[in-house]
Design a binder for these strands. Structure first.
Length: 434
RNA sequence: CGGGGUGUAGCUCAGUAUGGUUAGAGUACCUGGUUUGGGACCAGGGGGCCGAAGGUUCGAGUCCUUUCACCCCGACCA
């Protein structure tokens, strides 16, 4: 992509109502813009990032044997009346009527629809297990949307549902998905923790949340400084007062807070803030029984499916990545999520030598499958650098005044370091880095 | 859903108390010129139904009524 042809509306100032870094930077850098309360448009850069995350999620799930489907976003209200959630979900479900006065709902989640899909189509234990998922728009009419993409009303979510002949098999799948989710968040380049979200009813392992660690997270976690252990304070403590008191503390205050308890591995525990980006849950037969979705077991007896459900907040991840990876100048994308891996900055487009090298390099990188953008605008050096830092490309190749000595620079956004390399070697060097 | 707040140029905001020329600034944008390593400079220019509707008045961005939208704190939620 040529910057001169790209729709990337960057601004020096953020709208006054954006408070979080991810919200401010994603808007300033031209990734998203707000359409209404909790409603966001994805501009070209935001769309690229969203698709990259989606692709990684899909790849890992498919590898784990899941089937991608796409359910209708609009669902008949009757489906929700049968499960009882028309009542329990209340106003979060946005209801609409068609021209025939039939009532529909914008899908806030899809347990019912997935059960309906499988019911009477998967009828034998021989066809189980089966794991279906989709990456699709959800709508929840939140009382108070906020924090940009972190809590929107319309959002992109991966929701998966598995069906099993036995509880044991369902638990096996649960652990498989837990491992798969770890792979996904690791590939995204995130510092995350898997925490127990429910230590009660279903025996301690029934529900796990995946949290991206970030100062601005809404959830307070206790994590081990050595092993993988982590827990949400809402489930760790039974004392409501203690939970409320901890919730009110800022990130800085929590950092200095000493914990009396120690992890079972012996290491120290500390408080962290987290953004929930994934949740896996053992459902049992709650929905299959309610909707009479049965299969025949070895003895030919009808039994409701054992089920589990698995969610990832895809659009929320876009913001979570930036909450964890930013500085005062803007976004710092991870290698697997950057909208472009390489930004070629031609410092002065009136300098024919600089332009020629920029064009050659651009074409060569394109030919080698590198995600590259060529900043061929007529802006000055400082403007282009600020823009590159705000957007957060992983690498920027600076073609500028040092070209007179046959040198160019490779700038790494994360560390803000520049290394000088021979113009002849820059292609080889950048291919090594990416 | 309870409490508080804000709507004026693409964006950030003045102006509203005490109604009174043609509604301002910065930034962004356009034109020309000078610049070219950290969001340049000079000159010129375009851009507004002052959220919407109704009312008071000779006169409304400013006062009154209604309404819509958005934000913040809380409750709720994954």
């Amino acid at each position: 992509m040529r910057r001169s042809r790209a729709f990337i509306p960057t601004t020096k100032e953020a709208p006054s109502d954006a408070t979080l870094p991810s919200h401010q930077f994603l808007i300033r850098a031209g990734f998203i813009n707000q359409q209404g309360a909790g409603l966001y448009n994805f501009l070209p850069l935001g769309k690229i990032v969203l698709e990259k995350i989606r692709a990684i999620v899909k790849e890992e799930l498919d590898r784990a044997g899941c089937n991608e489907v796409q359910l209708s976003f609009i669902t008949p209200l009757s489906l929700w009346e049968r499960s009882g959630r028309s009542e329990t979900m209340g106003k979060e479900m946005l209801r609409i009527k068609d021209r025939h006065e039939n009532s529909f709902v914008l899908s806030p989640t899809n347990e019912e629809a997935m059960v309906e899909l499988v019911k009477n189509r998967v009828t034998s234990y021989k066809d189980l297990p089966i794991n279906l998922y989709q990456i699709n728009t959800k709508f929840r009419d939140e009382a108070r949307p906020r924090y940009g993409l972190l809590r929107g009303r319309e959002f992109l979510m991966k929701d998966g549902y598995s069906f099993h002949a036995s509880e044991d098999d369902m638990i096996r799948e649960f652990h498989l998905m837990q491992d798969t989710y770890k792979k996904i968040f690791t590939r995204l380049g995130l510092d995350f923790r898997v925490v127990e979200a429910d230590s009660g009813a279903i025996g301690g392992s029934g529900s796990r949340e995946f949290h991206v660690l970030a100062d601005s997270g809404e959830d307070t976690l206790v994590v081990c400084e050595s092993c993988e252990y982590g827990a949400n304070i809402e489930t760790l403590y039974t004392d409501e007062q203690k939970i409320d008191e901890l919730k009110e503390r800022s990130y800085e205050e929590l950092q200095t807070q000493e914990l009396d308890e120690r992890c079972s591995c012996g290491a120290k525990l500390s408080f962290k803030k987290g953004i929930e980006v994934g949740h896996i849950f053992q459902l049992g037969t709650k929905y299959s029984a309610a909707l009479e979705a049965n299969f025949n077991d070895e003895n030919g007896r009808a039994k409701p499916f054992e089920m589990a459900t698995f969610g990832i907040g895809v659009s929320r991840l876009v913001a979570a990545i930036i909450e964890q990876n930013h500085d005062k100048d803007g976004c710092i994308w991870t290698k697997s999520t950057t909208p472009y891996m390489v930004n070629i900055l031609v410092s002065n487009i009136k300098d024919d030598e600089q332009v020629k090298l920029g064009e050659d390099l651009y074409n060569k990188l394109l030919a080698n499958g590198v995600e590259v953008i060529l900043d061929d605008t007529k802006e000055r050096f400082g403007f282009k650098m600020k823009d590159a830092e705000l957007i957060g490309f992983v690498y920027t190749i600076i073609i500028g005044k040092e070209l007179a000595d046959g040198k160019v620079e490779i700038y790494e956004r994360k560390t803000k370091t520049k290394i000088s390399v021979d113009a002849n070697n820059v292609f080889t060097k950048i291919m090594e880095l990416i």
